[in-house]
């Protein structure tokens, strides 16, 4: 059974159609990358999956159950964690509080262990534990956003441009960690501008163009496609 099944999804803001019938499916335990230019509808698709925006048409199934029209907090409780565009950390809360909120739905008894585990993935957050999240560097904020999502122990992780605005070395570190947590069986759907980096870790890829799926296939195949190389990998 697939983790996520999106079919014929349509979504508009005002009069603008952001998604024009997108279908995609995610296999259990895979990393799937969503490629596409700005405005292709990648962020809208993630938001629709996590319930932040309401699609006008189509169907979304999580683990076989239709989640269409559910509020975001209810979708979260199914085991979906969405790290939004721009990280979405709570700047006025401390690192500790951000992590605690990440585990809002977790039993309080488990909290210390879960936070401890998230911190072992990102030791730098440990040093910043009681600082305000707003005072962290961009890379640290991205780590915090990821760690916070992991405290929820999700079954499906949605990542929106985790490498945006980060130094290449930090971006690689983030992707290494994504790879690492995925090994525990977590399914990941990641939107990424840095196609080269993303295709290295991904199992499968979708390419979105102006609200529609242009092509999709195993990451190794997509890497070889000429139009993808030209458009997203900078190969001429």
């Amino acid at each position: 059974m697939s983790v996520l099944e999106v079919s014929e999804l349509e979504l508009s803001y005002g009069g603008i159609r952001a998604l024009k019938g997108v279908s995609l499916s995610l296999e259990e335990g895979q990393i799937t990358v969503l490629l596409g230019a700005n405005g292709a509808g990648k962020t809208s698709l993630l938001k629709a999956i996590s319930g932040l925006v309401k699609p006008s048409k189509g169907e979304i199934k999580l683990w076989g159950e239709s989640s269409l029209g559910w509020p975001a907090y209810r979708i979260t409780s199914l085991g979906v964690a969405h790290v939004p565009e721009g990280r979405g950390i709570f700047a006025g809360l401390s690192v500790r509080e951000n992590l605690q909120i990440g585990g809002f739905l977790a039993p309080s008894k488990e909290m210390p262990a879960r936070i401890e585990q998230a911190l072992t993935l990102f030791p730098r957050l440990k040093e910043r534990y009681s600082q305000l999240a707003g005072s962290l560097s961009g890379g640290e904020q991205q780590m915090l956003a990821l760690a916070r999502a992991l405290v929820a122990r999700p079954r499906l992780l949605l990542l929106d441009e985790p490498s945006l605005g980060l130094a290449p070395i930090i971006a690689q570190e983030i992707f290494r960690t994504i790879r690492q947590v995925h090994q525990t069986g977590l399914s990941v759907l990641v939107v990424e501008q840095n196609a080269r980096l993303a295709l290295q870790v991904a199992d499968y890829a979708y390419v979105l163009k102006t609200g529609e799926v242009e092509t999709h296939g195993p990451a190794s195949e997509i890497r070889g496609l000429e139009q993808v190389s030209k458009a997203y990998l900078g190969v001429t």
Partner: peptide, 15 residues
């Protein structure tokens, strides 16, 4: 406090 700071993101936390 999280809700007050960012409502959308706080819903993503399950609130």
């Amino acid at each position: 406090r999280a809700v007050s700071e960012n409502l959308d993101t706080s819903m993503l936390m399950g609130i």
